[in-house]
Amino acid sequence: MTFKVSVVGRKGGVGKTTTAIHVAAHLAFGDRRTLLIDGDARNYATTWAAGGHMPFTVDGIGGLMAVAEYDAAVIDSQADPSEQDISTLGKHSTVLLLPAVPEAQAVSGLIQTVQVLDRAGVSRDRVCVLLTMDTRVGTATQDAREALTGAGLRVLSRTIRDTVAFRHASGQSVLVHQVRNTAGKMAWEDYRAVTQELLELGQ
């Protein structure tokens, strides 16, 4: 059975496409034939992968018809998806991944998204939050984690550090560890840990 991760973000700038790209890469490097579905009308994932050096296949929404032919599939949802889109992705994904930056407005938006899933009957056991753009300074990330877990949401233990290496990687159509700086390699390891957590959740 195909392991399916849907990456959903109703707020822009939370690292949705960055997360989809790097989770797909780690799944592929784990010897899984992996498909990334670019469901965003802006085609950011397709543009990022345009250099042709990604270890996974990229396709548009039409590629959903071929998901069963792969060991793993990552769906980069459209920006600000409708409640119907969120419900559908929740029902048909192994894991629904919600990236969020550690700030109050993002926390509020996530809770609203999960309420949509609750109404659709999607188990919260298959929904998790990934805190991105973690500056590793101050208490914002911990405060967000506590607020989300207090609202009954599952928050992945690993966060994604905030680094300009992601912008360099996107501009060069490469993965973040291929950017020639230490922060990029550390961010790559963040996503390795996240992918492992997702696989464990999907078991």
Rank of each mutant, 00 (worst) to 15 (best):
D76G: 06
F56V: 13
I111F: 05
D76S: 09
V176W: 01
L98C: 05
I160L: 12
A73C: 15
T139F: 01
S157R: 13
A120M: 07
D71S: 13
S173H: 14
S87E: 12
Q105K: 03
D134I: 00
M65V: 15
V67K: 00
E83P: 04
G52V: 09
S157D: 15
R167M: 08
A144T: 11
A165H: 02
M65L: 14
T94S: 15
V74L: 13
A100I: 01
S87A: 15
V176P: 00
P55H: 05
D59N: 14
R180A: 15
D71Y: 06
V127T: 13
D162I: 00
G51W: 09
H168C: 00
L131P: 08
L117H: 11
G109D: 13
V67N: 08
I111M: 07
Q172S: 12
Q84R: 12
V174E: 04
Q78P: 09
L148N: 10
A104E: 11
H53P: 01
Q172M: 15
H53K: 15
R124T: 07
K91Y: 04
M54Q: 13
D59A: 15
R180G: 12
R119M: 08
G90V: 06
V155L: 04
S108D: 08
G184R: 08
A100L: 03
S93V: 12
G150A: 02
A104W: 00
A104S: 08
T159S: 13
T182K: 09
I75F: 15
D162N: 10
D134Y: 01
Y70K: 07
V164N: 03
D76T: 03
V155N: 10
